[in-house]
């Protein structure tokens, strides 16, 4: 059975005429690294909130593990199972001290103190923030704050983490740190990752990419398959990475090239 199943979901915000999501179908298996890309207002953040029961679908069903998100008694189990990291690093940190913030979620689900201690230390170790344990959260850099948010989620031992544009407000260094952490957790710890982003470089790291536009999923496939459609992606206001633009241009001039996702890939196939 899949970890997350989204079946024919439709969702409309209160007071809006157009649905924010319609006909959404999605299947996420344990250990997957999938990415959802789309321009602003395409509905990708709304989809993220549905997976974590911050919102509930108007039509269709979302099954997480064994539970339907419409089942009000299972909310906390689902939220524990599907952790969520938000865009703004400042607005998701609750505590003044780094270790207290990691402990927040565990305190909420009434984990015994000794167990909290163990899990907090382990989680901070995984995101490489152990040496900041006793530091004040507001003094961390953007990338460190996002890693702290990730630590707070993995401490709760979820099977899946949904990251809603986690790097949008970070500088390049912070972005790199966060992406490396995500890849590490997926590869080494077998945690399912759903990365929502509008950076295609980040999305290209996933096993599978979904492209959203105007409340629906327009395309799905491996990064190589999806990123072939450069003209379409540009049409729906996505920033196409310069490497792909260059490769596309060369291809139009008649140079035979495989699918290119990275600068190294382009260099390899040209030289």
């Amino acid at each position: 059975m899949s970890l997350i199943e989204v079946n024919n979901v439709e969702f409309k915000y209160h007071g809006q005429t157009e649905p924010a999501l319609k006909d959404i179908n999605l299947r996420v298996e344990k250990g997957d690294f999938i990415s959802i890309i789309g321009a602003n207002g395409s509905g990708k953040s709304t989809l993220a909130k549905l997976l974590n029961v911050l919102l509930r679908p108007d039509k269709g069903n979302i099954i997480v593990g064994k539970h339907n998100t419409k089942d009000k008694d299972r909310i906390w189990e689902i939220r524990k199972n599907v952790g969520m990291v938000f865009q703004n690093p400042d607005n998701q940190i609750v505590a003044t001290m780094v270790e207290d913030d990691v402990a927040f979620g565990l305190e909420n689900i009434a984990v015994p103190s000794e167990e909290i201690r163990k899990r907090v230390d382990h989680a901070l170790d995984l995101v490489d923030l152990s040496q900041y344990k006793k530091h004040e959260t507001h003094k961390l850099s953007g990338g460190q704050k996002q890693r702290l948010a990730i630590a707070g989620i993995i401490a709760m031992e979820p099977s899946c983490i949904v990251l809603d544009e986690p790097t949008a407000m970070l500088d390049p260094q912070g972005r790199k740190e966060v992406i490396e952490t995500i890849q590490f957790l997926n590869k080494e710890k077998d945690i399912t990752i759903i990365l929502i982003s509008h950076f295609m470089e980040e999305a290209s790291l996933a096993d599978k990419v979904y492209v959203m536009n105007k409340a629906t999923i327009k395309m799905e496939g491996t990064p190589a398959e999806v990123f072939q459609e450069i003209d379409y992606l540009r049409d729906i206001n996505l920033d196409v990475p310069i490497v792909m633009e260059v490769a596309n241009g060369l291809r139009k001039k008649g140079i035979k090239l495989p699918n290119i996702l990275t600068i190294d890939g382009l260099v390899d196939s040209l030289c």
């Binding site: 305190e107 015994p112 103190s113 201690r117």
Partner: peptide
């Protein structure tokens, strides 16, 4: 989303 449930019994680190 991190399971905060208001007044419900919490544990402490």
């Amino acid at each position: 989303s991190r399971c905060y449930q208001g007044g419900k019994q919490r544990t402490r680190l």
